[in-house]
Write a protein that binds this DNA or RNA. Structure first.
Lengths: 225, 225
DNA sequence: TTCATATCGAGAAACATTTCTCGTTATTAT
DNA sequence: ATAATAACGAGAAATGTTTCTCGATATGAA
């Protein structure tokens, strides 16, 4: 349908992935500034606090369509709104979560998601002893019902928090249910039709970066020979 | 000497952050191949399964010092060892964890860390009702004891899994205890001396990337103001 | 043995991201 | 009112990452 749409004065640009990853950091930082009663902030200031280059901050924020004032900076409330709109946090996306182990429960219990426009509306598990119990006000349903329910409820987003071995099967059930985006916390490569978007969230990735940096910097305990 | 580097036969190169983030993915993938009895694998094959460019896979793996065989590929066991050595996963790093909420418990219960060379040796909390209780075989200690204990046990790595508001205070205690690397799961910008390495793990970052991609691709439910 | 081919390794080219530079503009002080 | 200045915006330059190209080499088939 119509893709090109002049949305008034707001220039919606495409953001690179590094920029997208930084936007939530700015958002949280700006929230704390707002709570302290601050009204405006400059890129220089943000850059100082977040240890980022001021120009980079400026370019990052520019993708949201915000306009700043020379010598002053940006209005914090405006900036927050722009980031939220740009990331789609102002309108809620409903999601299904599968896997109610430690991580799944942590995700279910994370109230913060609502502020990020994400609402987990149902939780699933394959463990019979868990089905029917309640975690963080969510009744656990059998994973067999996922595909059907997703279709009926027009759910677009699925969250996978099961062990790696079970991930592929769950992903396929999600695909069958018409889910178009998957947030995958299992350390497994999902093989799915290309039209389904997969965002892998691998704890080990962050750990690898940290290990390498520590190892390089401090000589952690690199074995000789 | 024409070259100033003579570090033995294994060429330890520097890896870019994107490469570092992909290495654990390769590692897990190779593990599953090994379990299925496979012996060798080529970059082309890996690239197909992981939806990555074969050349990129080759360059990524090259940083670990592995050498492949034309027409054959790499020996999987060798490759696994190289990745593990490169990331320092073959020797254990001891870490302290602070915050035993949902996320903290998920991290404490995650057995996989041991395979990644990470061992959480103590868990801390500020909640008096939690102190003294046991989570995943870890006795919860009062956070006041962290700095002292870290110094006595020569702990270098700290994991922060507390609410954003408490993160700065915890980070400072870690710095006081001589910890040199912090894995921060709180959505907060820590202000610390520059010699302390901080790896921020922000759930919202992954969500932001996913939201943007879904929004752009499928027109999730873009508001018309 | 010799040929065809899949794959590696390394350097070049293309592309993406970050950092720099400079002209413009709103505020504050004189 | 005017000058000095802090900060924005946009384009250029520098840097980093990915993709392409090509020569070399091990394996399997003729």
């Amino acid at each position: 349908m119509t893709k090109e749409q002049t949305e008034g004065n707001k220039q919606e640009r495409v953001a690179s992935e590094p920029t997208l990853r930084r936007l939530p950091t700015y958002h949280h930082y700006l929230k704390t500034l707002a709570e302290r009663g601050r009204d405006v902030v400059s890129c220089t200031h943000i850059g100082n606090d977040l240890r980022l280059d001021p120009t980079q901050v400026r370019k990052d924020l520019a993708v949201t369509g915000i306009r700043g004032l020379p010598k002053v900076g940006y209005r914090i409330d405006q900036l927050l709104t722009c980031i939220e709109e740009f990331l789609g946090w102002n309108n809620t996306t409903e999601a299904f979560l599968v896997g109610t182990g430690h991580l799944g429960q942590a995700l279910l219990g994370y109230e913060g998601f609502k502020r990020y426009g994400l609402e987990i509306v149902a939780a699933f598990d394959s463990d019979e002893t868990k089905i029917g119990t309640t975690v963080a006000a969510h009744k656990i349903l059998p994973v067999e019902k996922l595909a059907n329910l997703a279709r009926r409820m027009k759910i677009r987003l699925g969250i996978i928090a099961v062990p790696a071995a079970a991930a592929q099967q769950v992903a396929e059930a999600m695909a069958e249910g018409g889910i178009t985006g998957i947030w995958n916390f299992a350390p497994a490569a999902l093989s799915l039709p290309p039209e389904i978007l997969v965002q892998n969230e691998n704890l080990a990735s962050g750990l690898a970066v940290l290990s390498a940096k520590i190892g390089r910097l401090a000589g952690l305990d690199i074995p000789r020979e």
